[in-house]
Simulated scan of single mutants.
Amino acid sequence: MATMRQLVGEVLRAHRAEQGLTLRAVSGRARVSLGYISEIERGQKEPSSELLAALAEALDVPLSSVLRDVADQMELHELATQQVAPAPLASVSSIAVDGVRASAA
């Protein structure tokens, strides 16, 4: 089973590679050491939420997109190992975001 930090690293690396950016370029944009970003991409370190936001911004990708990609990859890994069946969206009754409730259809 893949860990969350491994999937985060894979998604960040994929976005970086898709844009043809080097670790050095992302490092400069995010103001994070090249070595630390490398460790994150290899799944050796787990970024804080603030660092993840800085990396997403450096990659010019919405943080929500990064998180969605990680969730999609996690679901694929779960399905591949038959550990968790996907829950239908309708089973989520409501979600609160910044104090605002949004009901699922």
Rank of each mutant, 00 (worst) to 15 (best):
M1Q: 10
M1S: 14
M4E: 13
V8R: 01
V8F: 06
E10C: 01
E10F: 02
E10T: 06
V11Q: 00
V11S: 01
R13K: 13
R13T: 02
A14C: 08
R16K: 04
R16C: 02
G20Q: 11
L21H: 04
L21M: 14
T22D: 10
T22I: 04
L23T: 00
R24L: 14
A25L: 13
S27A: 15
S27V: 03
S27T: 03
G28M: 09
R29D: 05
A30Q: 01
S33Q: 09
L34K: 00
I37W: 01
I37M: 01
S38Q: 04
I40F: 08
I40L: 06
E41F: 12
R42N: 03
R42Y: 02
R42A: 03
R42K: 09
G43T: 05
G43N: 03
G43E: 02
Q44K: 12
Q44C: 00
Q44I: 06
E46D: 13
P47I: 00
P47S: 09
S48K: 05
S48C: 06
S49A: 13
E50R: 05
E50H: 05
E50M: 05
L51N: 08
L51Y: 05
L55S: 00
A56V: 02
A56G: 01
L59W: 00
D60L: 10
V61M: 09
P62W: 12
P62N: 15
S64H: 12
V66W: 02
V66H: 02
V66L: 03
L67C: 13
L67R: 12
R68G: 05
D69R: 09
D69Q: 11
V70L: 12
A71F: 14
D72Y: 08
D72F: 08
D72S: 13
Q73T: 05
M74H: 02
M74C: 00
M74Q: 05
E75P: 06
L76S: 13
H77T: 03
H77K: 03
L79S: 09
A80E: 10
T81Q: 12
T81I: 10
Q82C: 08
V84S: 12
V84T: 11
A85T: 13
P86W: 07
P86D: 11
P86C: 11
A87S: 14
A87G: 12
A87W: 07
L89W: 07
L89R: 12
A90Q: 15
S91I: 07
S91M: 11
S93D: 15
I95F: 13
A96E: 15
A96D: 10
V97M: 11
V97P: 01
D98M: 08
V100H: 11
R101M: 10
S103H: 03
A105W: 09
